[in-house]
């Protein structure tokens, strides 16, 4: 199984939808996946939120009123179906946290097979750069109320877009 296949498989087990797409298809797919209103912040080479219905540089009011938040992941971790969400000065952390639906964009080439590889990469990027990131695996969840419920404080649903060149 390819690393991307493993990743998709793991996400499936977490009840997370995955769409694999070419950069050219990004705008169209994104429009289908998001529920409006949507906010986002994304700095990737291959794709951009420009020209999409996603509001960038949102205000706090937009942030709390939007249904969808779109952000990028610096890494995908195939064996777990995890995405690494860097905290940015553009507000990626609240955008990925406050909306009911989180749409994550990750490049296929940034998907690594396992946790040791991911931690090794983060040691040189995150730790050396004194940055922050979240290893997010599936939607927010709790079992504190007597049964598993998705959407405790964070997103209730997650959709991952894998950009394949």
């Amino acid at each position: 199984m390819s690393t991307v296949d493993t990743f998709e498989n793991a996400l499936d087990g977490l009840a997370v939808e995955t769409t694999r797409l070419a950069p050219e298809a990004f705008e169209g797919v994104l429009e289908e996946v998001i529920e409006k209103p949507a906010v986002g912040t994304l700095s990737m080479e291959s794709v951009s939120l420009e020209g999409t219905p996603v509001a960038t540089d949102p205000t706090p009011n937009q942030l709390t009123e939007s249904v969808t938040g779109v952000t990028g992941a610096s890494l995908g971790i195939a064996e777990y179906g995890s995405v690494v969400l860097p905290s940015t000065s553009g507000g990626a952390e609240p955008v990925s946290l406050f909306c009911d639906l989180h749409v994550v964009v990750v490049s296929a080439e940034d998907i690594v097979p396992d946790m040791p590889t991911a931690v090794g990469t983060m040691a040189t990027t995150l730790a050396d750069g004194r940055e922050s990131a979240i290893i997010a695996t599936g939607p927010s969840a709790t079992a504190d109320m007597g049964a598993l419920v998705r959407g405790a404080h964070g997103p209730k649903r997650v959709h991952v877009l894998v950009i394949e060149q």
Binding site: P58, T59, P60, N61, S87, S89, G90, M122, S132, T137
Partner: peptide, 28 residues
């Protein structure tokens, strides 16, 4: 669980902009 939903690796103070809830000024 294999992992919890969120493993937060924070190196505070974080670079996330401060959030004035109720405000219409952009986060930037």
């Amino acid at each position: 669980q294999d992992l919890t939903s969120y493993m937060s690796l924070l190196t505070p103070p974080v670079s996330t902009p401060t959030i004035e809830f109720g405000s219409d000024a952009p986060l930037s």
